[in-house]
Design a protein around this nucleic acid. Structure first.
Length: 481
RNA sequence: CUGGGUGUGGCGCAGUUGGUAGCGCGCUACCUUGGGGUGGUAGAGGCCGUGGGUUCAAGUCCCGUCACUCAGACCA
């Protein structure tokens, strides 16, 4: 038994036993991050950063395709600038970091380290937008921001995190609303096609929307343990920021008017979403589209004549075919390598040894289900492509099944508590009257807060789950990260 | 911010009534190894998060402080 079993158990805490500890084990043992001496600030190690680079590459392509340009704003915001939009500053003030000194001299006005860059974009738009001909501006930036969080967790809630923030400005409200919806769809497509994570699109309730927004849209994902994670947001600002920052343009009719704005973002939190959606007790499981290594070649008996040569040949073939492949010819035993790359979530493993070479074949193992297949070396490239697709589809299906299994439709608060207690945490679909008091009451009594008002509505009942008055929307509720 | 846990070689841990540190993994060298963390021999490596206190004597007791972590409240 026991040797392997024991070592595996020691390597990582079981997710059923302690999900939070399992998560922490994975981020450390898969070498995604390392802690630093500043609370909430982490080193994203090469393997973790490579995942982010792949996400960036894919998303950036999607942004460019929808007409966006990249820019880069400074990281400091003067206090007076942050103050200009009232709701915005109230929302962010409690968690900003301040720069008060330059060298030894106290600054005239303190500078905040950007928690988000709406104010900087607005200041800039006021300078460059004068005519309807200047619109729209479709900007995006890839930067880090700082929010002084109290409780921190790697990827899920760190004090500094990497993200992209899109900021666009349009002549009309219609255009801006269309942009908001378009980017929500871009995020959805990215999560489904690249991360194999199913998401629910919805609108945030008044109490939950972004500080300064008219409306906030979000995609919500359900983690393996039944907790919800906000995976991306897209905000419609109307002309509120434009008015606060005095951005005006002359229309075709030569009348001055206020433009309409949006912003949208996803962060390195998506790496946390991948871990908690696809990971298992052997470690990380990465969706092929963003896996730094898509296939790893493990030679068996690699010092026997011809083995390493053959393995190198396979490596070159796969590499030439555009697959991110690694040949591990280190002195570690094959078994050690198997466990290592499982921990790191490599989607496909290719085993090649003397027996295989003799039969002109190799063994392919898929990470998500451990299935082993012998395939002819003639079909190596096609087979690996097929297997990568299989992993992606398998991951998406499993995540979808978990979500469906953990989505409960409830008519009363008692039903919510019953569902959560009997079946475990998950999404609750229940009706809502639209009153904030009821929203708060549901959370107080069940622990499940409102995640969003799904764009795809269902009629669970006619009355509010809390007060019994006529319902306005179906809300998706859940305990959140 | 509230409440719990933890801080001892690179990592994970032990350290009994206070007497000046021990184990496993990893690491280095050599040998061994055919398919799920291969086996062996010999080495290197720590003043116990940090500041103070009690004591003849502190990893061990007391106070402070910092960090990590877990559960809440808040947020991407």
């Amino acid at each position: 038994m026991a040797k392997q079993d024991k070592k595996n158990v020691e390597a990582i805490t079981s997710m059923d036993e302690d999900f939070a500890q399992w998560y922490t084990d994975i981020v450390k043992k898969a070498e995604l991050i390392s802690y630093t001496s500043v609370k909430g600030c982490m080193v994203i190690r090469p393997y973790g950063y490579a995942i982010w680079e792949n996400m960036q590459r894919i998303l950036d392509g999607m942004f460019k395709e929808t007409g966006h340009e990249n820019v880069c704003m400074p990281m400091f915001i003067p206090e007076s600038l942050l103050q200009k939009e009232k709701d915005h500053v109230e929302g962010f003030a409690p968690e900003v970091a301040w720069v008060t000194h330059g060298g030894n001299d106290k600054l005239e006005e303190r500078l905040c380290v950007r928690p988000t860059s709406e104010t900087l974009f607005c200041e800039h738009y006021a300078q460059i937008v004068h005519s309807y001909r200047d619109l729209p501006k479709l900007y995006n930036q890839w930067v880090s921001v700082v929010r002084w969080e109290k409780t921190t967790r790697p990827f899920l809630r760190s004090r500094e995190f990497l993200w992209q923030e899109g900021h666009t400005i349009h002549a009309t409200a219609e255009e801006a609303i269309e942009e908001t919806e378009k980017m929500l769809n871009v995020y959805t497509k990215f999560c489904v096609d690249s991360l194999a994570i199913p998401v629910v699109q919805g609108k945030k309730t008044e109490s939950d929307k972004f500080a300064g927004a008219v409306s906030t849209y979000a995609i919500e994902a359900l983690m393996h343990d039944g907790k919800a994670l906000q995976a991306g947001t897209s905000h419609y600002f109307g002309d509120g920021f434009a008015k606060a920052f005095e951005i005006q343009y002359a229309g075709k009719d030569n009348k001055l008017q206020y433009p309409h704005q949006t912003s949208w973002g996803v962060t390195t939190r998506l790496i946390g979403a991948i871990i908690m959606t696809h990971g298992d007790n052997n470690g990380l499981v990465l969706p092929p589209a963003v896996a730094p290594i898509q296939a790893v070649i493990v030679p068996a008996a690699m010092h026997k004549p011809g083995v390493l040569e053959k393995a190198t040949e396979l490596y070159q073939q796969l590499k030439d075919a555009g697959i991110r492949v690694k040949l591990d010819d280190s002195e570690n035993s094959p078994g050690w390598k198997f466990a290592e790359y499982e921990m790191k979530g490599v989607p496909v493993r290719v085993e090649i040894g003397p027996r295989d070479i003799e039969a002109n074949q190799c063994v392919i193992v898929t990470r998500h289900n451990g299935e082993k297949t012998s395939i002819s070396l003639e079909n190596l490239i096609e087979s690996v492509h097929e297997k990568l697709q299989e992993v992606h589809d398998g991951l998406y299906q499993a995540a979808l099944e978990n979500r469906n299994k953990r989505t409960y439709q409830c008519r009363t608060i008692d039903e919510i508590n019953q569902a959560l207690n009997e079946k475990g945490d998950g999404f609750i679909e229940a009706m809502w009257c639209g009153e904030e008091a009821c929203e708060d009451e549901v959370k107080a009594q069940t622990g499940a807060g409102s995640r969003c008002i799904p764009l795809e509505q269902k009629q669970i009942s006619d009355v509010c789950v809390c007060c019994g008055k006529p319902a306005k929307h179906m809300v998706l509720w859940g305990k959140a990260y």
